[in-house]
Design a protein around this nucleic acid. Structure first.
Lengths: 109, 109
DNA sequence: ATCGAAGTTTGATATTAATCGAATTATAGA
DNA sequence: TCTATAATTCGATTAATATCAAACTTCGAT
């Protein structure tokens, strides 16, 4: 792999995934009931792992939904021992889609 | 089972369909590319029929998407001769989901 | 009366996405 | 090193829904 490509990939990796997603896609990402619950849970808890959120699906399905959220730029995840702690990227969501996440979160079920 | 349509019959006919829909369902309603285009088109044109919006799908598919939007309470439709003119229910959307439609519409593609 | 334009209805099909179980990886503690 | 916990990967299945063509309805104009 040559140097130019490596740099290009490094740039891609550095870029915010939110820059690559349209609002219409974001609506689908947050439109899934499980992902919606994850987002609301993280908004309430601040930082949490899979287990704490008490999701109504299997582990593999939960992993899938966290990946979708991560790829869309909605959450970020760090490792802490054997757990993976996720947080909402509220600041970045507001930059990319002003007013949107706020409107979503202020809605009570 | 059709998550987007099913509530229509259970609802009181007089009640605003928006009262029977959760935000999570609304995200799915607006998350479809064709419906998203319809909504943006209506926001721009104010009132329009199917034909004017130049949708990339067949007539029957267009009808389907207008129905979903109507059942969700996003649009209302009146007959004018052989055409059916639809409008965005911006006022009612704001009442039900404050700030949401505004945040969606202010986003440029 | 009939024709064309606009939409709807009705199946049937295609596509997309969610879901799960089993096997696997990684880490922390006994 | 062994075990338990947390999560991921893989492959297959199921469920949801978008899509279309064809036949039908309605209305306005010819």
């Amino acid at each position: 792999m040559d140097m130019l490509n490596d740099n290009a990939e490094a740039r891609d990796d550095a870029a915010d995934p939110l820059d690559a997603i349209e609002l219409q896609e974001m609506l689908l990402v947050l439109g899934d009931p499980v992902r919606f619950k994850i987002v609301k849970g993280l908004a309430r808890l601040g930082e949490a792992n899979c287990t704490r959120l008490d999701l109504p699906v299997s582990k593999s399905t939960a992993t899938h939904h966290f990946q979708v959220l991560r790829n869309a730029g909605v959450i970020s995840t760090r490792n802490e021992g054997t757990a993976r702690l996720s947080t909402l990227r509220e600041r970045e969501m507001e930059r990319r889609f002003p007013g949107f996440l706020k409107a979503v979160l202020q809605q009570q079920d």
